[in-house]
Each structure stands twice: as C-alpha cells, then as structure tokens.
Design a protein around this nucleic acid. Structure first.
Lengths: 147, 147
DNA sequence: CAATAATAGTTGTGTAAACAACTATTTATT
DNA sequence: AATAAATAGTTGTTTACACAACTATTATTG
C-alpha cells in the first residue's frame, strides 16, 4: 500500500468540500456576532468585492463569487435592507443595477476586516506559508477543472 | 516582499471557505442528476456514514458530519421520504433514533460511489498525491484550531 | 428594420445551514 | 427517592443555495 491508496475518492471529496469550510463559515459568523457585526459570511463576500470595486453590476458580483444570479439578487436585497449597499441604475444600459456601498457600508470595512483577520489567524495557526500556498495552487487546479 | 505577504487574510479566508467547496457541491449535484440519482451532496454525506456504520444515532451522524442536530433531523426526514433510510427506536433508551438503510438505500451504494469517484477524479485531475495529502494535513490543523 | 439572440435581473420552489427554544427521556446528585 | 443536570431529538425562524422559468432591455443578423 502506497500513498496513493491512503485516501479513497470519498475521503478526498469530503476533504475538499466537507466540514472545514462548513466550520469556518460557522466560526466566522460567530466572530461577527461577538463583535456586534450583523453580517453573514456570504454577505461579507459581496461587501469584500465592493471594497475593492465599488459600483459593479450584480452579474459581476455573481461571477466574482461563483454564485448564480438569483443568489446575488437576494444577497443584495438583504444588504440593502441592512443599509450597507444601494442599487443604482446604469446611466445608459437600463438592464444593469450597479451596486454601491452606502456610508454605513463603508464604515464597516475596518471592523469587518479586523474580525476576518483575527478569525483566519486563529484558524490557520500552525500552518506554514508553504502549506497555504500549496492549497492555493491545488484549489486553482480544481477550479479550472470544474468551473 | 516575501511569501508571507502574498495572501491577505481575506484571500486566505476565501481560499479555505470560498468557491471551490461551493463549486464542488454544485458539480456533484449535477453529476448525481445526470446519472438519475435523486440525492443532494448533504444527503449523501449521511448515507456515506451509514454505508460504514449502519444503525447509528442521529447524534452520531451530527458529530460525524460536523452538522448540528436540527440539520441532521431534516436530512434524515428527507432521506426517509426518499425511502433510503428508516428510523427505529433504540431497544432500551427511548431517547435515541437509530438510523438504518433500507434495501433501496443499500442498492444505491454502488451507483453513488461510482458518481462520487468519477466526480472527484475529474475535479482533482492534475493534482499530485502529495498535494492532496498536504491539504489533508493542513485541514486537520485548521479543524483542531476551530472545532 | 424586423425578428432573433443574448444579457441582466427577478421570482418561485425545494433543500440546507445556524441558532434558539422546546419536549421527552435518562443519568447524576444530594 | 426527589430534584437537577445531561442527553437526544424536534420545531420555528432567518438566511442562503441551485435550478427553472420569467420580464425587460440591448445587441445581432438576415
């Protein structure tokens, strides 16, 4: 028996899509709550795009987060209810909603980033940078295989 | 700038909990559907336990899949509706439901395993076994950090 | 330029997640 | 033995996912 046999395909699947992502999301949600930040991990994934590129379309957000359009519609709905973003019409193409951060949304950036940083530091404590980069490279290959 | 700076904490978070698990789940769901298997990835995660250890409690299933008890209640509800499992009372401890595969559920094992194997092989094509084991070790560390 | 195709977004439906609050049952404590 | 604590499971609520079907608008093409 060599290394190739150590993991069944079932184990590999569970490894890649299993409980670590599940636990990380749960953990981040708890950390947000502890800091009084009323936000889900998925809502944050949208805000994270806007902090880099404010005013993009929902289509852009969907592609950037690998979600489908209905998912983005509803995430933006909820972020709008929370007062963190607003929809504006594109000036010439009336099909597009452009999503902009509100002042309130912009004010969240630093507190959110602090929670995310602390959360990820606790989660990956003990990992080497090489391990993290190896995961990045591996996930990039998987992404290309199945996107 | 060294390797340590290549990934922000935000990037690390997105790496570990981001779109690869999302895409893998979507991809597996599509593959199941293509093969006429009416099953979600989450339902499969329960069946996978039962294929190793038939007749365990819901509590056991919850711990084995890192889900909370209500999630397992509803997954078992749906698997029961599909006719793949059944709840039976524990003989002496009336608090426990023991979950057993039905004949129909047992017959699904090989077809399911084939789809999972094909899916994961397509997804990880190009990865070395060392990369997969590196991910396993890294995820084990993360799991211990946040469980 | 009219018909068709493509694009952007929304709504409907079913499944699943977390958390809180709850019932029923068993175990531990005093 | 009676009370308290722990354990197993369910139900209610909110959020999010995928997929299908839909409207509105813009771009293509014949």
């Amino acid at each position: 028996m060599n290394a190739t046999d150590l993991l069944t395909n079932e184990n590999k699947y569970n490894l890649l899509a299993g409980r670590v992502p599940l636990l990380l999301n749960r953990y981040l949600g708890q950390q947000f709550k502890n800091e009084g930040i009323n936000l889900t991990r998925e809502q944050w994934s949208i805000l994270a795009i806007l902090y880099h590129s404010d005013g993009v379309s929902q289509q852009f957000l969907a592609e950037a987060t690998s979600r489908d359009k209905p998912s983005v519609t509803r995430l933006v709905d909820n972020l709008e209810k929370l007062g963190f973003v607003e929809r504006r019409n594109h000036e010439t193409d009336r099909r597009l909603n452009l999503i902009f951060l509100t002042d309130s949304g912009k004010q969240m950036q630093d507190p959110i980033l602090n929670v995310v940083s602390e959360t990820i530091e606790k989660a990956i404590k003990g990992l080497t940078e090489e391990q993290i980069l190896a995961i990045r490279d591996a996930f990039q290959i998987i992404y290309e295989n199945i996107k």
